[in-house]
Each structure stands twice: as C-alpha cells, then as structure tokens.
Design a protein around this nucleic acid. Structure first.
Length: 415
RNA sequence: GUGGGUGUAGCUCAAUGGCAGAGCACCGGUCUGUGGCACCGGUUGUUGCGGGUUCGAUUCCCGUCAUCCACCCCA
C-alpha cells in the first residue's frame, strides 16, 4: 500500500456530507451578503507570499511548500488565500470589472507543519475579502458574515474576539512603548518571549506561561495608542456590531501572525477544538494591495478553517440524504425489465439504484434497507406477466401493485 | 522543529515471552419472492513498517512511519 502523505486526508462518505453542509451555508451567506466567488490557482510565484504574507512570518520562513519548476521559476503551494485574492484583484482590475469588489474563495492550502488536531499540511479555507471600502460598516459586514456562518452552523460556545492594531501612522508609537515596557522585565520572561521580543514583539501577548502573565498584563494596549482616525474607526465598528446584536469581546491580546494587518483584527474561537481553537481569523489590511503593486486600496477579510468548522459541528447538524427508490429484480427477465425501469426513473429526475449481481430477494431487500430507500420496486415474473410492478413503502411495509405505465409518477409521490 | 502518549480484523477494543480473541459490520441460512427484530453458521489479520535480544517476540529493546496531546504556530 502507498499511504497518503503525512498531514493530508481523504474525506470519505459519512464525513464529506458535513463538508458539503458547511460549504453550502458558506455559499448561501456569500450570495446573501453580495460576495462573488473567485477561483485562484493553487500554485503561485513564491514572491507573492514573501511580499504579501510577509518575510518575517513563520509561514514564509519555514512552512511553505516551495520548489523550482522545470522553467527555473520559484513556485509555492499557497499557504493562505489573501495574497492570491489581492493578486487577482489587481491583475484583473476587479474594482472596475465587478459591481463591487467583494469576493470569496474556497480551497486547499498547504503548510509544512507538524500535524495535530485541527492542524494539517493540506487544509481547506473559506476566504472572504472586500476591497476598496474604508467605511467601518464593511468591517462589521465581514464580521457579521463570519458570525452568521458560525452561528448558522450551530457551533456552540463560539466567541468573537476583536481588537485594533492601528495603522502605519500610530502603530510605531505603540511598538516603541511596547518594546520600552518589555525591556525592563525581559530577563524575567520565558525563553519564547525573549525570542519574540526581537522577532515579533506583538506575539508576546500570545504567551501562555503562567509566570509571565503579571508582566504581560502590565504591558501597554494597542487601543490606547490609536491615532484619532483609527480610534474613531474602531468605535464605529463596535457600534455596528452592537446594532447587529453580535456579541463581541475586546482583547488587547488578540494578535495575528501575519504582517499585513491594520486597524480591525478579529477571531472567532471554538471551545471544542483543543489548542487549535481559532475557527476563523481575519482583519483589515489597508496597505497590502499597494504593497503587491496595485493602487492604494483598502482591504478586509477573513479565512475560516473548514476542517475546524467540521470538527466543531454539533452532533445534531442536519445531514439530509436524498430520498431514493431501490429496484429488486427477480430472474433474468426481471433484471432486464429492472434495467429499463432504473433508467426511466433516473431520466425522470428520481434517485434510484438496483443490485447488479443476481442475488436473493432477501439480500436485495437488505441492501435497500441499508441504503435507506423510501420505496422498493419489485420486478419479477409475476409482475411482468400482469404488466405491473410491486411498490413497497419501506417505512410502513405496505405494498401495492402499480401498473407499469404509472410507476414513475407513483414513485415520484413517495420521494 | 521540541517533548510525551498510542499503533492488534472494515470499525471499537481485549489478550499473552509459547496455536491472536470478542462485539459490531459483512456473507449465507432459519424465511426456495420480501428489509429492520431474533437465532444458527461462515469470512476477515504481513499484531503499522524495519532491525535487535531470545530456542521462540504481537508482547522486551532500538529505529522509522502514522496518529493523538502539549510546545511552537495558526485556519
């Protein structure tokens, strides 16, 4: 046997229905909110992520699947969706080509990480992006879409956390204040925090070491250093969320691992996922479009982990099976008649199956039961002689002789 | 990339340094043309893979792969 690659998974029947349920609701919500689908390639130039996701991020530094192709180009399997969406927005001038530049995508992403619950090497994201709208209402709309997805799926105990990390005008002041505050206590912090202080100071807020918490609690908060426009923007976002009745919690410790975020950042956390508890995360990235060679346009979006949404789904998630008919054929004549009946039902738009091997009636009935067929159609010598088909209602056990010509329409009333 | 736990039938799990088991599932029968319930019978294994110790390893040891948990990171 040749096994699947580490950190990748086959999604089999029994599981795939949950995915379809999640994907269906995501598409419905996008349609309702006015976001249109864009499908971008799985492979991109390596530099797209180096510039877009950020050279200093762990994703770019150690998690990308990159290789040189036969033409000598550096290629990367996308580790996240946003840079591709920005590239497509710029490359196809979507702000003019579309009525509004609100787009979404779904598909596989790749990161070379150690797999664990909720974290895989090939994983799947539902990604939503809105370009060129600076008004805080769009921040709230994107968060509303995210919240509607999680609550619409019935995921229990989900929590929306928001923060504002400021903009290029005000963030340097905050970072200076943060570094100054950390400096004094740096020797008392854990090794990871000491490393973060030089590589990515904001991540100190992510530290879970109990001994570090008093020091971290005393560090400055980004929201206290916002410039006037950023503070006004953030207040407005919260106002829209309140007006929508969406519960949120503000946390100065919400820091996101990507370099491009400005102003609003948010996550929705699940309670049943273990350490990988972020169902989705996102925020505003007002400088990214320009960084990637486009005009100076704002952007905001989020990415949801489909594996994590599926994991967090409640037991009661409605997974509906298509009602179907099953044909039990007896004898060679019966099997020949069953084959034409099977095709008639399918041509009429009905779901129908039959047993292809010549097995006992009992075995065929068992198969019908296992397939959860609504009705079983029995085609044997007796029925053929009378020009009829026996229809058995599998729920009640009632059987009726139906004229051959009327069978398709009769079955339709059961399905 | 680091530390720890676990790998036995399709699934969930037993067992023992000496012939590898159960329940469920599957197949057949009781019921020669009728599912679910019941009973009877049957099939199913390179004990994850490779090496070592041993007369003998599924069991003990090492490596490796996978998986789970935590770190790290993030969806």
């Amino acid at each position: 046997m040749i096994p699947a690659i580490r950190g990748t998974h086959d999604i089999l029947p029994g599981e795939v229905e949950k995915w379809q349920y999640v994907e269906r609701l995501a598409r419905q919500l996008c349609d309702r909110f006015g976001y249109v689908e864009v499908r971008t390639p799985v492979i991109e130039r390596e530099e797209l992520f180096a510039k877009g996701t950020g050279e200093t991020t762990d994703i770019v530094q150690k998690e990308m699947y990159s290789f040189t192709d036969k033409g000598g180009d550096r290629i990367t399997l996308r580790p996240e969706a946003t840079p591709s969406m920005v590239r497509a927005f710029v490359e196809h001038n979507l702000e003019n080509a579309l009525p509004s530049a609100k787009i979404f995508a779904m598909g596989p992403m790749f990161r070379y990480e150690r797999p664990q619950k909720g974290r895989y090497r090939q994983f799947h994201q539902f990604d939503v992006e809105a370009f060129g709208i600076e008004d805080p209402a769009v921040d709230a709309e994107v968060i509303d879409l995210a919240w509607s997805l999680v609550s619409g799926l019935g995921i229990p105990q989900a929590e929306l956390v928001i923060n504002s990390v400021g903009c290029p005008a005000c963030r340097p002041r905050f970072q200076d204040a943060l570094l100054a505050a950390v400096k004094d206590d740096l020797p008392k912090l854990c090794g990871d925090c000491q490393r973060r202080a030089t590589t990515n100071p904001l991540r100190i807020y992510d530290c879970k070491i109990p001994a570090d918490q008093p020091i971290i609690d005393a560090l400055p908060h980004s929201v206290d250093y916002l410039c006037e426009p950023c503070a006004t923007h953030f207040t407005a976002v919260k106002g829209y969320l309140d007006a929508a009745g969406i519960p949120w919690r503000q946390s100065h410790r919400l820091v996101r691992g990507l370099d491009y975020y400005t102003r609003t950042t948010f996550e929705i956390l699940g309670q049943t996922l273990g350490a990988q508890n972020a169902l989705l995360g996102g925020g505003r990235y007002d400088g990214l479009v320009k960084t990637l060679g486009g005009a100076d346009r704002t952007g905001i979006g989020f990415a949801a982990g489909l594996e994590r949404l599926v994991l967090a789904l409640p037991e009661t998630a409605p997974i509906a099976a298509t009602p179907r008919a099953f044909i039990v054929a007896i004898g060679e004549d019966g099997r020949a008649a069953a084959w034409t009946l099977l095709r008639s039902l399918r041509q009429a738009g009905l779901a129908a199956q039959m047993e292809f091997d010549a097995r006992s009636v009992r075995a065929q009935m068992k198969r019908a039961d296992r397939l959860a067929a609504r009705v079983t159609l029995i085609v044997g010598g007796d029925e053929l002689a009378r020009g009829e088909i026996t229809l058995r209602d599998m729920a009640t056990g009632d059987q009726h002789a139906i004229a051959h010509d009327a069978i398709v329409e009769t079955v339709r009333t059961y399905l």
